[in-house]
Each structure stands twice: as C-alpha cells, then as structure tokens.
Amino acid sequence: MTQKLVTQTQPGNHGQGPLPGSLYGSETVEEDRAPKLTWKHYLLALVSDRVTITAVLFLMLVAIGAAGAGWLAPYDPVAIDIMNRFIPPLSGTADGSFHVLGTDQLGRDVLSRLMHGAQVSVSIGFLGATCSALVGITAGMIAGYRRGLFEDIVMRLVDGMQSLPSLLIALFVLFIIGGGYLNLVLVFTFLHWMVFARMARSLTLGYRDSMFVSAARVLGCKDRRILVRHILPNMMAPLMVLFTLEVAILILSEASLSFLGFGVQPPNASWGRMIASGRNHINTAWWLVTLPGTAIFLTALALNLVAGWCRNISDPVQSARWLTPKRGKKKQ
C-alpha cells in the first residue's frame, strides 16, 4: 500500500517537474503516461519551438566557445600587438593576419578575448547560482520541514536581506575584501541564497504533510532521506527555472561589478571588463563596447527564454499545449 503511494506520486519524475499526464484523465494515464512522456517528447517539443531552440543552440555555442577557448580561440587573448590596434571587425592587417571581430586598444584579438571572457562571465554566473542554490535550498527545505525557531530565523534573515539593495552591498563588500573571481562568487552566494531559500521553503511546506511523505515516514525513512529523495525531486522543476533566471541575473551583475572595477583583474578578460576598457574609445572603436555587451545581452536573453520555456513545459496546464500535438502526431 505505502509502496504504491510513493510510486504513484512520483512516477519517474526525476527533475522534469509535474507531468502533464494528469490532464488526460485516469485511464489515459494508466495507459500511456509512463512510456509516452520520456525525454524524447520534451526534446521534440523543444525542437519544434523555433525561438527556444535558437536560444538553446546559442547557449551551447557560448558554452563550447567558453569551454574550448584554449584551443578554439584564434589568438592569444593577452598578446599585445601595438602595431595592429583598433583594427575594425572583418578586416585584415598589413602583416596578413585576419581578425573576425577586430582588435582592441592594445591590438589584442577581440574574438579571442570574448571567448576567454565568456569563461569568466558564464562560469561566475553558473558557479554563483549553484552555490546560492545549495545554501538556499538547504536552508529553505530545513526551514519548511522542521519549522519552529529555525524557520523564524531563516525567514527573518531572508526578508531582511531581500529588502537591501544587493548591488550596493556587493559593491561595498568587494571594496573591502577586494575584487576577483572567488570573491565575486562568495558575494553572489551571500546575496542571492535568499531567493532559493524562499522558494524551497514554500514548496517544502506544501509537501511536508502530503501523503507520500507520511508514507515514507511510516516506512521508517529518516528526515534527511525524505527531504533529499522524496521532496527534493518534486521541487526540481520550479527550482531549475529559478536557477536559470539567477544565472542570467548573476551574469548581468558580474558585468556591472566588473565595469566598476571589482571583477577579475587585468589582463584577464570578462565581458564587463571589456566594456569598461572599451568605453574610453567609444568615439573611435564602436566594436569594443558593442560586441561584449551584445554577448551579455544575447546570453541573458537566451537564458530568460529557456527559463520561460521550462516554466511553460513544467506547468501542467501550459505543457498540454506544447506536448499534446506531438502525441497526436505520433499516434497517426
């Protein structure tokens, strides 16, 4: 009995969110929920959505460019070549080298710097969001599950910190402890865990008295197992959406902080730093400011689009619209 309860509430639902099968009445669910809605359906729905698939492909391009910057970048990102400075995009130099996106004020290749900058910008966003998610989800889940004094303390802290201007606090903290990669991640974790804590707590509150948790408890599961194996998988969909949005927010924040001089230190590139150093040459070399900013904009845009798609697909009402036509086609 209890075993059945557990399997019914989360049938293969590991990280993909509430399944849309619940829409089609109990009989259909019995018949084709488990075999039909695999990752292939999600993939198909993704491929047929032109905007989102473009966003995903762009993000993959950024990820490949960033991860493979060491081999793929055409030039050394810090090699100074003063004779060939301010070469506009798509033009060759006198000595025969070709710069797709031009060179900067020190003759460094902009494309290579963009790729190495992506390494810093994207990984800070990703790492910062991961650390804040770990801290926030742990605190939020324990608060929602245990309640009591711990919950009060955590939620007071969350309320208080969320009503502070995070960029300002980040600036001030970085001014004191100094800029740099690890400090940025640290500051982002410190200032963004509350978002995850708030959501994890409210979701845990919704599950803690539900049937499958009681069943797990009756079976003798320890609290930690209940939280990690039973409650957490059910919260994955909204948390993934939040995570994606946070990565975008952190990439933008990193750019802002780097622009003010608190990011990674030169000669290393990050997108925000590239804009900051190109700013002085805005009159003569438009590409130095335009290109890294466009990279930030497009990456954040793609992340927002993907987050929106994930939200739609994991929402039982919305996802029917995305997934049902494909089901119909398959049957024919």
Binding site: A248, L252, A255, S256, F259, G272, I275, R279, I282, W286, V289, T290, G293, I296, F297, A300, L301, L303, N304, L305
Partner: peptide, 17 residues
C-alpha cells in the same frame, strides 16, 4: 524580455554611441 536581459550601463553606452 529585453529589459531583464540588458545591462543598464551598456544600454547607456549604446545610446551615447
């Protein structure tokens, strides 16, 4: 969608440009 994806200072620089 664009407004949450753009960095304000870069938008400012683009407007200047």
């Amino acid at each position: 969608l664009a407004s949450v994806s753009v960095v304000q200072f870069w938008l400012g620089l683009m407007l200047i440009l």
